[in-house]
Write a protein that binds this DNA or RNA. Structure first.
Length: 827
DNA sequence: GCAAGGTC
């Protein structure tokens, strides 16, 4: 038997299809797909199926000096057990194998990992095939001419893994231990995340250091035959360049007087030129994230939608650096697949009508994946959610744009004068729409300036003098950040968006566009002082050079990792001395990120704190002398916002809870409101009304939450949740089943009916359970609804309802799939 | 429990 190994399931399926001429069948072992025809088997890995780590005795952070990690052994352990087991079983039956992982450095390493897992079981040859796209020709050609694994290239990747692990783990542990930040809130450092963080911190430093300057700009409305247009004052500065900003108020007023006193301005020059506006390049990951960003999608969200579209077969692989379409992509053919579409048909036909179709190309040409483009398999509009459709349309239209004609603009520049004061107006007009006709995402706004001639007199109608201030540089948005990372050469197409997300998770970034926390600044400061290398893009550049040397056989893995270890030793020698100083600085910054405002009882600072049980509350920095506290909402993680409450000079708090994130506001205001509000009784308590005369009342808590609860609390704990926002109206209609009044909520302009609070809570619980089901991968909205219909209303029910019965009654669900879902729950 | 890189 011949075993073929690919990097992912998707590639395995397609390669099996090609090599078997469509006859391959699929079996599942331990939840892993194995494609089979004749004596061939194909298995897809899931990227790396093994990972590096330190041996067990280094596990406990407290028991090990971080510097010990530098020379610690490193072991390779399976991380995807199901796949490794299946691979093992297949290898035992195979007498030869072919490694067909991606054609890049990481693919070579993943191939070598597979090689080491199977080599003892396989008697015959283990070969390597390389192809840059999964097409009939390329795949068949590659399998007809197999090669050997490139162990040097794989070693280059391995050196990267080792260096990243040692530097990352040792420095992360050092900072965390020195600041006594263990557990979930450790302080992390790494070759990619730290230079990215420094980029953001540096920008923030520029913003902080920025000193605004006042300047003036002057505008005048000119008119020809009643047609008005705006012109701006300009002059030549000392360097002879054209300038609009006037830096002295006196000068500005002088110009203003001249213009305001004039009735007309004489046209001194008119120039026209046409400009070609070339269509954009094909999408690589970064450009895609950026375009989706201007439609309002976060990098993470854009990528997850693109991944979905890819798995559904509508677009190509979304992780790519390539900006040149491969030769086997036939633009005519791809356009042709859109001609029948309601949404894209007419645009596609228009593009096909061109004499010659020549796609644009970018600078980056790689061989692993094509630029992101539609596959030509079209989804129906109803198959996709609104967001998915918007992203799909973006990808389709980007492809359209890359095969469309250039646009042409006509620019008109008019200079007019009043005495020695010059005014200019720049008009632009789109004369050839070109690619803009199919790609509406870039601006085509025109600025109209009428046709005037030299020597002509224009009337001056309105003159304005605007006082302005220079602005600090803007914070990087997420997609700009990813672009910068690409320019700096750090991270990869698959990980850059993930890195930004990680910085948020680690408590280094807040808000969007991201703003660094005090902790982030402290970490960057400490690294700049003691481990400059790890916040510098140079580390990646040097690593890249070392990896190239290994791949070309000019250095060995040991040479490179040994010298990296020596450098880290040197870093630790300095760090060791400053351990306490660094730790204190980090702790101070952590406190600064949690500081809310003055304590009303002792004047010390109120801080966001966490109880032993893990819940968050507001406590005083003066504890234990001052025991003032305030509650916080019980859902989510608190984030201290920049804005403060005027009354208490206390920062507002936001509770981060994924989709349920909300702004809690000032905790002192929330407590004060609760103290002032009176409970409104709405009926008898269903739990203790008969026995103890308990009553249900609408209550507002000091934590900001509202509920319907029993007046005998804490003796009776019966409660139902109420929404956080809006005024609650108690109507005089009653629920037949529970005898409670129907509630209406007035929030802003549109009131909504909450109904009986008991019925509302039951519906809410049912929806929650279905949402939980949908969190299991492979269960979509429709499947969840179908499952609910046969009694599987929560993940727990998956284990209790008879699988055969589910498979019988829910169309499209197999017992295999159920087993999969159960395993996911167990893991 | 640390990193970064694959992939889901």
């Amino acid at each position: 038997m011949k075993l073929i190994i690919t990097e992912k399931d998707n590639a395995a399926r397609r390669i099996a299809e090609i090599l078997s001429d469509g006859t391959a069948e699929v079996d599942r072992h331990n939840g892993v797909n194995v494609y089979r025809w004749g004596d061939k088997r194909v298995i897809g890995l899931s990227g790396h199926v093994v990972g590096l780590d330190f041996p067990e005795e280094y596990e406990n952070w407290r028991d090990v000096q971080p510097a010990e990690l530098i020379d610690a052994d490193i072991v390779t352990e399976p991380t995807q057990k199901n796949i490794v087991t299946t691979l093992d079983a297949l290898a035992r039956k195979a007498d030869e194998a072919v490694i067909a992982t991606d054609y890049d450095r990481e693919g070579e390493l993943i191939g070598k990992e597979a090689y080491e897992l199977i080599e003892d079981d396989i008697e015959g040859p283990i070969e390597r095939v390389r192809f840059s796209s999964i097409t009939d020709n390329e795949v068949k050609e590659a399998f007809a001419n197999p090669d050997d694994l490139d162990f040097d290239l794989a070693a280059a990747g391995e050196a990267r893994q080792i260096i990243d692990l040692i530097w990352g783990a040792a420095l992360t542990r050092f900072l965390s231990l020195s600041a006594r930040q263990l557990g979930d809130d450790f302080i992390s450092v790494g070759r990619v995340q730290s230079p990215t963080l420094k980029l953001i911190v540096d920008r923030e430093r520029e913003i902080q250091a920025f000193d605004p300057e006042t300047y003036w700009e002057l505008f005048a409305d000119l008119a020809k035959n009643g047609e008005r247009f705006e012109a701006q004052y300009f002059y030549e500065d000392d360097d002879g360049t054209e300038a609009e900003r006037v830096w002295s108020e006196g000068d500005a007023e002088e110009v203003y007087e001249t213009l305001a006193g004039a009735d007309s301005a004489g046209v001194e020059s008119v120039s026209r030129r046409t400009r070609t506006d070339n269509p954009p390049e094909p999408f690589n990951t970064t450009a895609f994230i950026s375009a989706a960003g201007s439609l309002g999608y976060s990098a993470q969200r854009a990528m997850s939608i693109a991944e979905e579209l890819y798995t559904d077969g509508y677009t190509t692989y979304p992780r790519t650096d390539n900006t040149v379409y491969p030769e086997d992509l036939d633009p005519d053919e791809l356009l042709d697949s859109f001609t029948g579409s309601r949404e894209f048909g007419s645009d596609a036909e228009q593009l096909l009508a061109a004499e010659e179709i020549e796609p644009t190309r970018g600078d980056e040409e790689t061989t692993d994946h094509p630029p992101i483009h539609p596959t030509g398999e079209l989804p129906a509009r109803s198959e996709l959610s609104d967001d998915e459709w918007e992203i799909y349309e973006l990808i389709v239209r980007r492809f359209f744009a890359t095969v469309a004609e250039s646009a042409t603009w006509e620019h008109l520049r008019v200079v007019a004068g009043v005495d020695d004061v010059r005014l200019k107006a720049n008009g632009k007009r789109l004369v050839e729409e070109g690619y803009h006709a199919v790609y509406p995402y870039s601006s085509t706004s025109e600025n109209h300036v009428p046709d005037v001639e030299e020597g002509e007199q224009l009337s001056v109608t309105d003159v304005r003098l605007d006082e302005k201030e220079t602005q600090p540089p803007r914070r990087y948005g997420q997609s700009r950040l990813i672009q910068k990372m690409e320019e700096m050469g750090i991270g990869t197409k698959s990980t850059r968006h993930h890195t930004v997300e990680k910085l948020y998770d680690r408590g280094y970034l807040e808000d969007d566009p991201p703003r660094p926390t005090a902790l982030a600044e402290a970490v960057v400061n400490a690294a700049e002082e003691f481990a400059e290398m790890v916040v510098s893009e140079e580390m990646t550049a040097e690593l890249e050079a070392d990896m190239t040397a290994i791949a070309e056989g000019e250095a060995t893995l040991e040479d490179v990792t040994d010298s990296s270890r020596e450098m880290l030793e040197a870093v630790f020698e300095e760090l060791h001395e400053s351990r306490e100083e660094v730790g204190e600085h980090l702790q101070e910054s952590l406190k600064a990120d949690r500081r809310l405002g003055p304590c009303p009882e002792c004047g010390s600072d109120l801080l966001v704190r966490q109880s032993r049980q893990g819940s968050y509350f507001v406590g005083c920095d003066g504890f234990p002398d001052c025991r003032f506290t305030l509650p916080l909402p019980s859902t989510g993680e608190p984030l201290v916002l920049e804005d403060t409450c005027d009354e208490h000079q206390t920062h507002h708090v936001k509770m981060l809870a994924g989709r349920d994130t909300f702004v809690h506001g000032c905790p002192r205001c929330a407590a004060a409101e609760a103290d002032e509000s009176e409970d409104r009784v709405i009926g008898a308590c269903p739990e203790c009304g008969d026995e103890h005369d308990g009553e249900l009342a609408i209550k507002q808590l000091r934590s900001g939450s509202r509920l319907v609860g029993c007046t005998r609390y804490p003796d009776c704990e019966y409660s139902l949740p109420l929404p956080r926002r809006g005024d609650i109206e108690v109507t005089d209609e009653y629920c037949d089943e529970h005898g409670l009044p129907e509630l209406h909520v007035h929030d802003g302009d549109d009131p909504w009916e909450l109904g009986c609070p008991v019925c509302n809570y039951q519906e809410y619980q049912a929806e929650q359970a279905i949402d939980d089901l949908e969190d299991i991968s492979g269960i979509g909205e429709k499947t969840a609804e179908k499952l609910a219909a046969v009694g599987v209303e929560s993940p727990d029910d998956l284990g209790t309802v008879d699988p055969d019965e589910i498979a019988d009654r829910v169309q499209g669900v197999t017992t295999d799939q159920l087993e999969d879902w159960r395993q996911q729950l167990a893991g």
